[in-house]
C-alpha cells in the first residue's frame, strides 16, 4: 500500500530517496541480531509460592487461636468450680457416690 503521495502532497512530509527500500533492509538486518523473548513462568511460580506462604500463615494463626480458646475455657471451668458451695458439693457427692453405693 503506497501512502507516500498522499502524505507528500497534502501534508508536505517527505522522505530521503529510496528510504523505504533501504530502511526495510536495514531493519531486517538489525532484527537478525535481536532475539525474541518468551514470557517465563517465573512470576506465576512466585505468585503461587506467595499464596502458599499466606495459606500456611493463616492456618497457623487459626490453629493457635483455637488452642488458646480451649486453654481459656479449661481455666474458666476450673475457676468456676471454686465457686461451688459446700452444700452443693455434698449433695452432688451424696447423689453420685454415697447413694450409689447403697
Amino acid at each position: 500500500m503506497k501512502k507516500e503521495p498522499l502524505h507528500n502532497e497534502q501534508l508536505g512530509y517527505h522522505t530521503p530517496e529510496g528510504y523505504f527500500d533501504q530502511s526495510k533492509k536495514e531493519m531486517l538486518r538489525f532484527l537478525e541480531t535481536q532475539k525474541p523473548v518468551r514470557k517465563s513462568n517465573a512470576p506465576i511460580k512466585r505468585f503461587v509460592m506467595g499464596l502458599g506462604m499466606i495459606a500456611i500463615v493463616i492456618i497457623g494463626v487459626f490453629t493457635y487461636n483455637n488452642t488458646q480458646y480451649s486453654n481459656d475455657s479449661f481455666e474458666k471451668l476450673t475457676i468456676e468450680s471454686l465457686e461451688v458451695s459446700e452444700e452443693e458439693f455434698e449433695q452432688w457427692f451424696d447423689e453420685n457416690f454415697v447413694l450409689n453405693d447403697i
Binding site: M1, K3, E4, Y13, F20, S23, K24, L28, L31
Partner: peptide
C-alpha cells in the same frame, strides 16, 4: 517461526507504520 513472522511484518506494514509514526512525531 518468529524471525520469519517479523520479516513478514516488516514487508507488509513497514510503510504504514512509518507514516503512522511520522504523523505523530512529525520529524523524519
Amino acid at each position: 517461526q518468529f524471525t520469519r513472522a517479523v520479516s513478514a511484518v516488516v514487508e507488509s506494514y513497514h510503510e504504514l507504520l512509518y507514516w503512522h509514526i511520522r504523523k505523530l512525531v512529525k520529524h523524519h
